[in-house]
């Protein structure tokens, strides 16, 4: 198993553990990275050329992250393999989660149980769709 995939699984486990313990400060972080690390893995494993191209951009830019580019590329590929089913919802969920992760980590935003449940729904939906379409 790739290290990225292992990290993705561990973040998913960490999410469940933190939810059980009602420790919500880092839970959005775990939920998001559980998805993002699998996005990275899928691109690296199945779409190497596109993954290399994003990395080249990152080296040229020399600052900032490439999360937006990874997610956009992933969705482009997902649209092709899934035949369009559930793609709008998945695209929206990943972007919403990415934005909310930043707010949850750095800003005066309360992470309550309602939001934890939404993150969990996004995360589980993402993992289900990747399992159905990429077998990971």
């Amino acid at each position: 198993m790739s290290i990225l995939l292992k990290k993705s699984k561990q973040n998913k486990l960490a999410f469940s553990y933190l939810k059980d313990k009602e420790v919500f400060a880092a839970i959005v972080h775990c939920g998001y990275y559980s998805c993002f690390q699998k996005v990275s893995h899928i691109l690296k494993e199945y779409y190497t050329e596109e993954w290399n191209s994003i990395h080249l951009q990152l080296q040229r830019r020399r600052k900032g992250s490439m999360h937006k580019e990874y997610i956009d590329e992933f969705i482009r590929q997902f649209r092709k393999v899934s035949g369009g089913n559930n793609v709008a919802e998945l695209d929206s969920n990943l972007k919403d989660l990415r934005s909310f992760r930043i707010e949850a980590d750095y800003h005066e935003i309360e992470v309550d149980l309602d939001r934890v449940n939404k993150v969990e729904k996004y995360m589980n939906n993402f993992h289900l769709l990747t399992k159905q379409n990429f077998q990971v």
Partner: peptide, 11 residues
């Protein structure tokens, strides 16, 4: 980034 959401969103 552009994100289109509905009532179920986190944000």
């Amino acid at each position: 980034e552009l994100c289109i959401i509905d009532n179920g969103a986190l944000t």
